[in-house]
């Protein structure tokens, strides 16, 4: 299981790109932290989520 935004999610083995798309995130509006570090956008496709990973997806909304 992967902990994503505080919830245990069955996402081990899939790429970050596939997780974000499947969960309905717009990649242009997000920043992703994986185990304490920001994942560079260019590495979303090659980043595979593993059992025990902790992920925070920050999805920005408009306004300021």
């Amino acid at each position: 299981m992967v902990k994503i935004n505080g919830n245990e999610v069955n996402a081990a083995g899939i790429t970050l790109t596939d997780y974000l798309a499947g969960a309905g995130y717009d990649e242009k509006r997000v920043a992703v932290e994986l185990n304490g570090d920001i994942v560079p956008k260019a590495r979303y496709k090659e980043t595979i989520l593993n059992d025990g990973d902790s992920v925070e997806v920050v999805s920005f909304v408009g306004g300021g």
Partner: peptide, 27 residues
């Protein structure tokens, strides 16, 4: 929102010695 994400990713990827204080959701 896209500009917010762009700046956040840019600062955290390219300027790792700096602190970033961002905002999302205040309408």
């Amino acid at each position: 929102a896209e500009c917010k994400a762009m700046l956040t990713n840019l600062v955290l990827e390219k300027l790792p010695d700096k602190y970033l204080v961002a905002a999302s959701g205040m309408a």
